Simulated scan of single mutants.
Amino acid sequence: MAPPFDDRQHDRSSEPLPDSIQLLRSLVRAVDSLASDFDVVELCQQLLEACTEVTGASDAGLLLADQRGELQVLASTNESVRLLGLLQHQGPSLHAYRNKTAASIPDLRADADRWPEFAPAASAAGYRSAYAVPLRLHRDSVGALTILATSAAALGQLDLRIGQLLADIAAVGIAQHVLLAQGATIQAQLPTALNTRVTIEQAKGVLAERGDRDMDRAFQVMRGHARATGRRLSDIAGDIVEGRIDLRADAAD
């Protein structure tokens, strides 16, 4: 495993950002959404998509710690069962969360002994390298952003800095979403965001079963409907679960 990434030791602020326009657009959208009644899952989806587009990675997932300190998936670039299961493995995400610093696995095959659960599963899924950065909020870590690539040593230090920047924005967005009670601690309110994900998972299952499509297609149908109607993804998911809307025709397309 490569040494933990440290901003202080790798100051490359003068180096031009790759795909800087795309990154800036993503940051502007994220900051703009925080000024209104925003959808926390959609915000995280946009940040993950920006992460893979700018770094060239294949997939990414954002995991949030629950009240027991266990990481749960809040958002991912792909809703396949295989990817969601992989993100839950004890791997770099847990390391980043617990140690509040980045973790790198430049070659999953070479580091299989060091990551006995995660590395074989990630390799079997077609990935060659994996990285994770903590979701930092003040001095706390509330989760992790995991980045996966199909080539070895795919991300450099600059890519990790970009990932950390996007993770920090996600952490701020999550905090704003969950701090509902005055004086409440962030850790006490984190289940609010995770409950949103539970509803989305239920709705995915309903659409996948009724439309005879996979979970990723079901998620994209929900997300598309939320964007088209200007409603929260969590509200759309709740309506599907409660039977108030029927998107079976869209899911079957």
Score class of each variant (00 low, 15 high):
7 D>P: 14
7 D>T: 09
7 D>K: 13
8 R>Y: 08
8 R>I: 08
10 H>Y: 04
17 L>P: 01
17 L>Y: 07
17 L>I: 10
18 P>H: 10
19 D>E: 15
20 S>A: 10
22 Q>Y: 03
22 Q>V: 15
25 R>H: 05
25 R>C: 03
26 S>C: 09
28 V>Y: 15
30 A>S: 12
31 V>H: 14
35 A>R: 13
36 S>V: 04
37 D>W: 03
43 L>A: 00
44 C>H: 09
45 Q>Y: 09
47 L>R: 13
51 C>W: 04
52 T>D: 08
56 G>S: 08
57 A>T: 07
57 A>Y: 11
59 D>W: 07
62 L>A: 12
67 Q>D: 05
69 G>T: 00
70 E>L: 00
72 Q>G: 01
74 L>I: 12
78 N>Q: 06
78 N>M: 07
82 R>M: 12
83 L>A: 10
85 G>D: 15
88 Q>C: 09
90 Q>N: 13
95 H>E: 13
97 Y>P: 02
100 K>N: 07
100 K>S: 04
102 A>R: 03
103 A>E: 12
105 I>D: 00
108 L>E: 12
114 R>G: 04
115 W>C: 15
123 S>G: 06
125 A>L: 13
128 R>S: 12
134 P>V: 03
134 P>G: 11
144 A>H: 01
147 I>M: 04
152 A>F: 07
154 A>T: 11
154 A>R: 06
156 G>N: 15
160 L>K: 06
163 G>W: 00
164 Q>E: 12
165 L>H: 02
168 D>P: 02
168 D>E: 11
170 A>G: 13
175 A>F: 04
176 Q>T: 01
176 Q>K: 04
180 L>H: 08
181 A>S: 08
182 Q>E: 04
183 G>R: 09
184 A>S: 14
187 Q>L: 15
188 A>E: 09
188 A>V: 06
189 Q>W: 00
190 L>P: 10
191 P>C: 02
193 A>F: 00
198 V>Q: 04
199 T>D: 10
199 T>I: 10
199 T>N: 09
206 V>Y: 09
206 V>Q: 13
208 A>E: 00
211 G>A: 11
217 R>T: 13
219 F>Y: 13
219 F>W: 00
222 M>G: 00
223 R>D: 12
233 L>V: 02
234 S>F: 03
239 D>G: 05
240 I>T: 01
241 V>K: 08
241 V>M: 11
245 I>G: 11
247 L>Q: 03
247 L>K: 06
251 A>P: 01
251 A>I: 06
253 D>E: 13
